[in-house]
Write a protein that binds this DNA or RNA. Structure first.
Lengths: 249, 249
DNA sequence: CCGGAATCCGGTGTATCTGCCGGATTTACG
DNA sequence: CGTAAATCCGGCAGATACACCGGATTCCGG
């Protein structure tokens, strides 16, 4: 693959980031992924998000340039359970080069073998993304670059896609409506909920804040109503997801 | 400031990342921060980490190139409570340019005014980092670049420091020996906790999962013990922070 | 073969939560 | 000047959570 001029790539990167921030619905995502393939000379790009949708226990969010055949085959074979890029990648912070993965397992070698047949590149990188409340994503790219090029390219891929992955995750969170309906809690309501989230009872919270237990209960009730929560546990979960409980040092 | 050759900067970046990965004790950090100032022509660099030490409720981890006077003054004035770079930066995913911050507040203007007197640059960016276990960090850089240069530089700073911030955080986690005592919940425990987090009662959860109410209570009790939580609310909060409620099966 | 973990089920007494009733003052905003 | 929101306080009945007691089978690895 020919190395392109760095600065022209840079411009395209920043334009793409801007586009990601301006997306208004999910239909634009495949086109953006396609442009990534062109700009960086990649074989495939994939986004796998977990905890980005509102409902629990939902299947993960998927946006890929893979063929439908590969996606179907992957699902049918339950590859996700053994795929080291997912199993390892989702449990670390730094990006990982697929060359570093352990391929001792028979099933794993089969996975990579079949992946190649379905059009994935020989080289790959997966970049983990960590959101604010347990939401996570994994952006994986593959390439057919030569060994010599790869040594050089992988570092630049890691750098650019670290940004791209983050912005992509943010965009998808936004599109999935995770950032809307930000309920506004009063300081006292937030404070009470904060201590309840730490496992304190209403009585303990009252002592901590120097209030009557009944007052604390009232604040909690109010907070539940504002958040549309069925109980304190639900309220803590909802508030936590939108960053209302992020207490600072 | 003169723009340096991109590729030479790139090499230095990747060397720095490697050095960060090889650090064996915290004494090497100030030197690394100093090199960042040289390489990127910055005025200051600062790392603020929360939840990186083993014990909870500890004071945040700080590694800065600021003068001691500024750090002392900042603490004495309790600036952290009003500092928008911290208040906003710690609550978002994407980096933020200090120019975008709201400076309507009188105290905020005083903060930025005094910061300049103590040697911080006129321009700044803060980059949030999210770890796997609810740990967070904020890497802030300042510069005295001209308006024209800044427009160009900020994007490249954001890109390089996105990586640097991540690796810096990872290095500090490693040096602080942050034990990954990630509680391991059984699938059933996780499932029960998931529905309780959605506001369901034990009885409702039992119906959803096709179990007896008592069994659900047992799983929840077990989950509480594993997580060291005082009650279900506490357990949901703890599990949510570390992604136990959103991760793949 | 044995220990541990995961999957299930039942009961009981007490603590806590939740919803709903009532009241109050202060502050901010149009 | 009225209205709304935030800050506080009290009580009560029923639902729910919590801890601690007991039991069971299955599966996996040492």
């Amino acid at each position: 693959m020919n190395r392109r001029d760095r600065n022209s790539d840079d411009l395209e990167l920043f334009e793409l980031l801007e586009k990601l921030g301006e997306l208004t619905d999910a239909t634009g995502i495949p086109e953006l992924l396609g442009r990534l393939l062109d700009i960086y000379g990649l074989k495939t790009v994939a986004y796998l998000g977990s905890g980005v949708t509102a409902q629990p226990g939902q299947s993960p969010y998927l946006a890929v340039t893979y063929s439908n055949e590969w996606v179907d085959h992957y699902k049918a074979q339950r590859f996700v359970d053994i795929d080291p890029t997912v199993q390892i990648g989702m449990r670390r912070m730094l990006p990982i080069d697929w060359d570093e993965l352990d391929r001792a397992d028979e099933d794993v070698r089969r996975l990579f073998g079949e992946a190649k047949e379905f059009g994935l590149g020989r080289r790959g990188i997966s970049l983990p993304v960590h959101g604010q409340h347990g939401d996570r994503a994994l952006v994986s790219i593959t390439s057919d670059a030569s060994d010599r090029d790869w040594r050089y390219l992988r570092l630049h891929y890691m750098r650019d896609f670290q940004m791209l992955a983050l912005h992509m995750h943010q965009a998808i969170l936004r599109l999935e409506g995770k950032t809307v309906e930000q309920a506004r809690l009063s300081p006292r309501e937030r404070e009470c909920l904060l201590w309840v989230a730490e496992g304190k009872t209403a009585w303990e919270t009252a002592v901590i804040l120097g209030l009557s237990e009944h007052t604390v209960r009232c604040y909690l009730e109010s907070a539940r109503h504002k958040l549309g929560a069925a109980n304190n546990t639900h309220a803590v979960n909802k508030a936590g997801k939108v960053g209302l409980l992020t207490q600072l040092p």
